[in-house]
Design a protein around this nucleic acid. Sequence first.
DNA 1: CCCGGTTGTGCAACTAGTTGCATAAACGCC
DNA 2: GGCGTTTATGCAACTAGTTGCACAACCGGG
Lengths: 183, 183
Amino acid sequence: MSLPHAILTALLEKPSSGLELTRRFDKSIGYFWSATHQQIYRELGKLEADGLIRTLPAEQPARGQRKSYEVLPAGRAELARWTAASQEPKPLRDALLLRLRAAAVVGTAGLGDDLRRHLELHERQLAEYQEIEKRDFPPGKDGPQDRLQHLVLRAGIDLETFWTGWLRHALEEFAELPGADPA
Amino acid sequence: MSLPHAILTALLEKPSSGLELTRRFDKSIGYFWSATHQQIYRELGKLEADGLIRTLPAEQPARGQRKSYEVLPAGRAELARWTAASQEPKPLRDALLLRLRAAAVVGTAGLGDDLRRHLELHERQLAEYQEIEKRDFPPGKDGPQDRLQHLVLRAGIDLETFWTGWLRHALEEFAELPGADPA
DNA sequence: CCCGGTTGTGCAACTAGTTGCATAAACGCC
DNA sequence: GGCGTTTATGCAACTAGTTGCACAACCGGG
């Protein structure tokens, strides 16, 4: 049950319409909690029905007409409650690791290409994060809010660093394997 | 669509009944693709209906009676196909990072405790992985199968290492924050 | 002015995963 | 030899997330 809270956070950072939210998810919050526009619209409807957000006045809500939302006090309270509440970490689920395990049984044919592709994707993501770090968190910028947001970004950077390193290592191993597909 | 393939992999490693599979998931494959017993039973039914696995003969399939499955050639072929097929990495979704981002807006009250709890969980998981590494992958054991399985385990170890490191760093930052809850 | 592309909102149906419970055999024990 | 516990299998209902599509308004060009 994290999507509503992701939306509340985004709306507190800045009131937005459904499409604006979708865009902001794509290049910020979505890095660690992705959502499609359909999910977002549906959730906005529920949050409004529950009295946690409301449409900004001064705009009529016709179809094809942008509708902006802001968080109500009840919404902020709910977000604070959820943030402080203890939660179990949900177990890892990664198809690539599973495929490697399967490859130990049925062979590695064809897997190398996709490993290389994933490596490239992770390298690109890492570069993007580092770009953001340079842009949004220059040396002096270290107020409480900045530190927390930077911490989250650091997690992204470290994760991508792990993946690129691990994938490179995996490809080396592949190269030494007898039946593996060649580069 | 990875659960059926996780089950096929497990069954190829060793034919098993539903409950045995559940147990093995809990302490091996489940580390990177978790599943409950209900998911497993349902999926076994589908896989059998699709002709990818079959019950081992010589045991009648009464209720409350163990029923063992083995993989048919079609199942092995399907697993090989899936392993080699290119797949998009599914985007990261991590509630803890989201909560930190929310905390930047609504405050960090109460969050520190849960961070410490997560740190402990990850430390325990890391220790378990290292135990497995020492037990199952001693220096000489490096056939192709061993190397691949070791590679997967390394990913687990490195991931937990990342998390413990990051969480410790996060707790340090928390300690320096003005309004943060004290240890 | 009307027509095709773009922007913005949304419904409906589907898939995957979770939770809670039902059922039956087998095991041991007093 | 009946009785509670453990082992084993499974159904049904629910929740979260995905996919495909519909539809209205608006914008610019011929």
